[in-house]
């Protein structure tokens, strides 16, 4: 049996850890919010500013998730997996890169024109070297995510898995990350699709129902 031991959200310009609001700022653009949130956390990691919006969202979600637990004190880097999903892939950055090609193409944008670069940024920051995958689904699919994470964790070597949903397009943004572990920590839930769906929905902070409208901005 596996357990959901931690979870985080970045939604409606809010950073939320374990259902608790960490910071919220409705002013400015989404990139402004992400940079301001990063600054407020006091993390010394200048590379953050160079990342695209998808990677910044994933990075902040993972910081919320893993900041207070010494993951690599408990596990070998190869025992930790990372399984992500979203609807828009890297389209937000693809379009910015396409715009840049009308003058001089930007190498810094080009390197982020794949969604799994966001997974790579999380792995580099947190020293994760295990199995990883990035799925494109129409919406967060708790059942599929549960099944795949269970499959990965059935492998002898995998002891923990960072998993979830990191999506962005225009002003639309929606992040739900969780940590699945073979060992139980305090207040852990059993890793089950019904629990994932409930945690994803997270009452009180809104959902991603307005995705298509926001994505047009």
């Amino acid at each position: 049996m596996n357990f959901i031991t931690r979870y985080s959200h970045v939604r409606n310009r809010s950073l939320i850890r374990q259902g608790e609001l960490i910071c919220r700022d409705l002013r400015g653009t989404l990139p402004d919010f992400l940079d301001a949130s990063f600054d407020s956390l006091g993390i010394g990691y200048p590379k953050f500013y160079k990342m695209d919006t998808l990677s910044k969202l994933g990075f902040l979600g993972a910081e919320m998730l893993l900041k207070e637990i010494p993951l690599l004190e408990d596990y070998d880097p190869f025992q930790v997996a990372l399984i992500l999903s979203n609807a828009y892939g890297s389209l937000d950055t693809d379009m910015k890169y396409f715009e840049s090609t009308k003058t001089v193409p930007s190498p810094a944008l080009f390197v982020y024109t794949l969604p799994n670069i966001a997974a790579g940024e999380i792995c580099i920051r947190n020293g994760i070297k295990g199995e990883n995958a990035f799925f494109i689904w129409p919406r967060f699919d708790a059942k599929q995510m549960h099944n795949y994470v269970e499959l990965v964790m059935a492998a002898d070597n995998t002891q923990a898995c960072v998993a979830g949903w990191v999506d962005v397009m225009g002003s639309h943004h929606d992040v739900f990350l969780y940590l699945a572990e073979k060992k139980e920590r305090g207040n852990a839930l059993v890793h089950a699709a019904v629990h994932l769906q409930k945690l994803y929905e997270l009452k009180g902070y809104g959902t991603a129902n307005d995705r298509s409208e926001e994505a047009n901005h």
Partner: peptide, 17 residues
């Protein structure tokens, strides 16, 4: 300053632009 290979490409673009 800790720049990397992608930064080097951006510097080439900067000179051009």
């Amino acid at each position: 300053l800790g720049l990397d290979s992608i930064d080097a490409l951006e510097l080439i673009v900067l000179l051009q632009q």
